[in-house]
């Protein structure tokens, strides 16, 4: 575990971790719509046992959690308290890390808020 944390800490500053949570959220949103539309159009009724949908939602939450975990490790790099506004590598890393953390929380909430109506729906009408 410690080696993993060390490895994450050595990662270079990147926008990739930042855009993972909202991208996964958008993908899950599309998946939810396709799930309902395809079931209604092809099967003619709403899926009664949505294993695939639950798996997709769990996968989305795991990906968001992973991005959030990497961001948390990076945000905990020792340094001044926020705002991280200096044009140094350290501040850039910590700024991106905090932004990624917040986006991960928002995206996780978004995924749950999108999945709840799908769980409530029972009918294609």
């Amino acid at each position: 575990m410690r080696r993993l944390v060390e490895r994450i800490r050595r990662l270079s500053v990147s926008l990739w971790t930042l855009i993972v949570p909202p991208t996964v959220w958008a993908g899950h949103f599309l998946f939810s719509y396709l799930w309902a539309a395809l079931n209604c159009a092809k099967a003619g009724r709403f899926a009664t046992f949505p294993t695939l949908y639950v798996a997709g939602t769990v996968l989305a939450l795991l990906l968001i959690a992973a991005a959030g975990a990497i961001a948390t490790v990076q945000a905990n790099t020792p340094g001044d308290p926020p705002p991280h506004e200096q044009s140094t590598d350290l501040d850039r890393l910590r700024f991106l890390a905090v932004a990624t953390q917040l986006l991960a929380v928002l995206s996780a909430i978004g995924v749950v808020f999108t999945a709840t109506p799908v769980a409530f729906l029972t009918d294609c009408r």
């Binding site: 749950v112 808020f113 709840t116 109506p117 729906l121 029972t122 009408r125």
Partner: peptide
């Protein structure tokens, strides 16, 4: 977040035909 989720949960049963 909790408040919005509570309001969402309160409105969802109405979507069931």
């Amino acid at each position: 977040t909790i408040l919005l989720f509570a309001l969402l949960a309160a409105s969802l049963p109405l979507m069931r035909p």
